[in-house]
């Protein structure tokens, strides 16, 4: 899938390329050899239970954390740099949204002011043009001008998440990392944000790295998925394939743990025993094989 923001020499290759990522905190290995490619306009899911290393992976990719080993390439150039120039370049191409967007807003400034800030930084220009752009962004995410003039604390959770998306979109990034970005929302509001994310990807060709523990949500929003366990990728492939015919026992356990009418809890227990009997987690190659669907 390509879109308006995806022309230029390097645009046919992956917009994001991650290889051999390792992260240690003391003697905890949080991420242990994770690699993947994200194509322009694609949506890749990162699933697994808490502590499996999803957030650490996302934070390294976003430049918020330093890797112990491994490389990240963004729009064709290495993205690990620490200089101001490196950080600006990274922010122009890639933005990240968290479960609770509260922390990314200055509580004393209006939402519109916060949305304007990255635009002023990356595309300085007349204030009038910037205001117009902010109005456009608010509109794009379904927020009223009045909501824009509010302080973050006066918005509902869903409105705040819309504002965070508007702020991230201001610099027209090519990659959006969403870390449990809809997990705290009520289901009726979550559906609004999912619908918004669908439309944005369709209209702008932005790519998503979607971190989440809810398999149903991940199924809705991604085309491919990596299943992580204890810092490693244990299965990867097209999201539909992985959910319909999981190959790794851990993926099977995750799936069978999702409640459905006639839920078979015995089966969950069996899955767990099968997993406990496994010698070690098999490694999965870094990049997808040509059919995009390697076995593990």
């Amino acid at each position: 899938m390509t879109g308006p923001g995806t022309t230029g020499p390097e645009k046919t290759g992956p917009v994001l390329s991650v290889r051999g990522l390792v992260k240690r905190f003391g003697d905890v290995t949080a991420v242990d050899g994770v690699g993947f490619d994200l194509l322009p306009g694609a949506s890749l899911g990162l699933v697994g239970e808490s502590g499996s290393g999803k957030t650490t992976t996302a934070r390294i990719v976003a430049g918020l954390e330093r890797a112990t080993a491994g490389t990240v390439e963004l729009a064709g150039a290495p993205a690990g740099g620490r200089s101001r120039r490196d950080r600006l370049r990274r922010a122009r191409h890639l933005q990240m949204i968290f479960q609770d967007p509260y922390g990314s807003f200055d509580p004393r400034r209006t939402v519109a002011q916060s949305i304007a800030e990255p635009i002023a930084l990356h595309a300085p220009g007349p204030a009038a043009a910037r205001h117009a752009r902010v109005r456009e962004l608010l509109d794009q995410v379904g927020l009223s001008a009045r909501a824009g003039d509010s302080l973050p604390r006066d918005l509902s959770g869903g409105q705040r998440q819309r504002a965070a998306i508007a702020r991230a979109l201001g610099v027209a990034p090519r990659v959006l990392i969403l870390d449990e970005a809809v997990a705290a929302l009520d289901v009726s509001v979550q559906a609004q944000i999912l619908t918004l994310l669908d439309a944005l990807r369709r209209d702008t060709g932005i790519a998503y790295l979607f971190v989440g523990h809810d398999l149903a949500v991940v199924r809705h929003i991604t085309d491919e998925v990596l299943v992580m366990r204890r810092g490693r990728v244990v299965e990867r492939g097209g999201t539909e394939r992985v959910l319909r015919e999981p190959r790794h026992p851990y993926t099977r356990l995750l799936l069978d743990s999702v409640p459905v009418p006639g839920w078979d809890l015995e089966r969950v227990a069996r899955d767990r025993r099968a997993l406990d009997g496994l010698p070690d987690d098999p490694d999965v190659p870094d990049s997808p094989s040509p059919d995009g669907d390697p076995t593990c």
Binding site: V187, S188, Q192, E240
Partner: peptide, 24 residues
Amino acid sequence: RALLEASPSVRGERAAVKAVRGRP
């Protein structure tokens, strides 16, 4: 019904989620 239609699911056909306007 709105709650069910707003919830994506892991099984069955992949159906569109239907947003409910407003908030609870």
